[in-house]
Nucleic acid binder design. Structure first.
Lengths: 127, 127
DNA sequence: AATATTAATAGTAATCATTATTGTTATTGT
DNA sequence: ACAATAACAATAATGATTACTATTAATATT
């Protein structure tokens, strides 16, 4: 993978946010510094960065979101505001029980959490 | 929701399979008995059946799959053959620890499992 | 440093699952 | 039987993503 300023900028943007951006959001951001970048370039580079394991991709409904935090962790989606949060869960607590599901060999466990985030819970209390 | 033979047929098809079909698969099946049914009708009815909680929808990569089993359960996807299996997990074992993730209020926990299914493990041993 | 090689780019067209639209048909209440 | 309207078939539109093509730029080689 040879260097390009487009890819460097895209990686920097993803590492400097915690909003789990979509390709389109990244596109809007990177256009501020590289105005004539192509949306296709953003998609291609996001895929390359995922392949190189420099970022993670998470599927949210119909869109793909990206995450600069490559440490194993899970996600919590707020059903009210739509934000996606990183959550650390001590996987050891429940993974062992999961590895023997029937006769299937489990290699990958993803926990998807939904609910109301702390901010929205707070706002709810104010009403 | 008023009656239609199209919806009845779609529901029957989903209840009589365990392949977690896509909209397109359902469309091909239902065309055997209702040849001039429209793909749009299949999509609209699948959405209505999900809203009525008569079936479940599960997202698999870029497509949506449907499941006639509405009891709480999780899914295991085989990375070799692509099949999606229902798996029953005693949720009680790990859910309690999860409900207190930070200050977020968790209402929904989905566990997505991946690996090699029993059939593929078996085939692997034969080689 | 100049040149050759080819990955990466910008711009745009194509794809694919899904949803929306429109005119017609079928179900249900009166 | 008839009116009201949910559901239909057919098809157009949408939106996220990928593919294509000619051009540009990063790295290797002389």
């Amino acid at each position: 993978m040879r260097y390009s300023k487009q890819r460097e900028e895209i990686l920097k943007i993803i590492r400097n946010t915690n909003v789990h951006p979509t390709a389109d959001w990244v596109y809007e951001q990177v256009r501020k510094t590289i105005p004539n970048i192509s949306l296709g370039t953003v998609y291609r580079n996001l895929n390359q960065l995922v392949a190189a394991e420099l970022i993670l991709s998470i599927k949210d409904n119909t869109v793909v979101r990206y995450d600069g935090n490559v440490n194993p962790h899970n996600h919590f989606k707020c059903l009210r505001c739509g934000n996606v949060y990183d959550v650390e869960i001590p996987e050891n607590d429940f993974i062992p029980q999961i590895n023997r599901i029937g006769a299937h060999r489990v290699t990958n466990v993803r926990l998807e959490l939904e609910g109301i985030c702390a901010d929205c819970v707070q706002k709810e209390k104010l009403n």
